[in-house]
Amino acid sequence: MISVMIVEDDPMVMEINSKFLKRVEGFTLYKAVSNLDDAKKFISIKKPDLILLDVYLPKENGMDFLKWIRGKEIDIDVILITADKSIERIQEAFRYGVVDYLIKPFSFERFKEALIQFKGRYQKFKKSDVDVIEQKELDKLIASSNVSQNEDDFAKGLNKYTYRTIWDEIEKRNYEDFTAEELAEKLGIARVTVRRYLEYMEKENKIDKLVEYGKVGRPQHKYHKI
């Protein structure tokens, strides 16, 4: 489980974010705090994997906390949650290494997307039994993060959440062969829909398609992750 700390001064927003977090598989709330002193105290007791950090706190600024974390070289990832839409703030946040930036108010779907993307990368690095990664594998991780693009920028007729659902299932199968029918049955998605996403992933060079010819009937298409 990925351990998460929420830093938020508004009790209602803290409760909403906590409930959102419980709805996303693979995450657990370590501590929810309303000020930076408590955040620093609980980090010293047990370091979480991820912090959902508000910027505007009473007489405090979440960016100062982010800079403190980086200055202390503490290995914690941060998603910034704020009503600040300024380009200057967004640029500053990414320069200090946030993994995502959520602008209030946001939907549960956008919140979930941010966590799922983080989980995919986190688990990939956590499970790795080597100290280095090749460019091809790194490009896959970067490509997965780019699934967060707007619908208008995504492939016409495809949905980023459906894409992520199908890709997560493919990841679970490692490099084993599978069919569109198997994925459709497992995920409860129409076979024709699954095939469209698999065709798109094939164009991205994320999967290969194999054609098996049987004695009777049409040839069967099988896929596996590259």
Rank of each mutant, 00 (worst) to 15 (best):
V4A: 07
V4H: 03
M5C: 03
I6L: 12
P11Y: 11
M12S: 09
M14V: 02
N17F: 07
G26L: 05
F27V: 04
T28Y: 09
T28M: 07
L29G: 10
Y30E: 02
K31H: 10
V33H: 08
N35I: 13
N35L: 12
L36R: 01
K40H: 00
K41A: 15
F42P: 02
I43D: 00
K46S: 12
K46H: 11
K47H: 12
K47G: 01
D49S: 09
D49N: 13
L50C: 08
Y56A: 10
L57M: 08
P58T: 11
P58S: 14
K59A: 09
N61G: 01
N61V: 08
G62F: 02
G62T: 09
L66R: 02
K67Y: 07
K67S: 02
K67D: 06
K67H: 08
W68E: 09
G71N: 13
K72H: 09
K72R: 13
E73I: 10
E73A: 14
E73S: 11
I74A: 06
I74Y: 14
I76E: 08
I79V: 14
L80Y: 10
I81G: 02
I81S: 06
T82M: 07
T82R: 14
D84F: 06
I87G: 06
Q91I: 15
Q91G: 08
E92V: 07
A93G: 05
F94T: 05
R95D: 13
V98Y: 03
V98F: 02
V99F: 06
V99R: 11
D100L: 03
Y101C: 11
K104V: 10
K104A: 04
S107V: 02
S107C: 06
F108G: 03
E109V: 03
E109A: 09
F111W: 12
K112P: 00
E113Y: 09
A114N: 04
Q117V: 05
Q117P: 01
K119M: 11
R121L: 10
Y122E: 04
Q123I: 12
K124C: 07
K126F: 10
K127Y: 14
S128T: 06
S128Y: 05
D131G: 06
I133T: 13
K136V: 07
D139E: 12
K140A: 11
L141G: 07
I142L: 15
A143C: 11
N146Q: 14
N146M: 13
E151Y: 13
E151N: 13
D152M: 08
A155Y: 15
A155I: 14
G157W: 10
L158H: 14
K160H: 12
T162K: 13
Y163P: 00
T165V: 08
E169T: 08
E169I: 06
E171V: 04
E171C: 12
E171D: 12
R173P: 03
Y175D: 15
D177R: 13
D177E: 15
F178K: 00
T179H: 09
A180C: 04
L183S: 01
L183T: 01
E185W: 08
I189A: 03
R191P: 01
R191V: 07
R196W: 03
Y197Q: 01
L198W: 00
Y200E: 11
M201L: 15
M201D: 00
I207S: 01
I207E: 06
D208F: 05
K209G: 01
L210M: 06
V211S: 04
E212L: 15
G217L: 08
G217A: 05
Q220K: 10
Q220G: 00
K222P: 03
K225Y: 12
K225H: 11
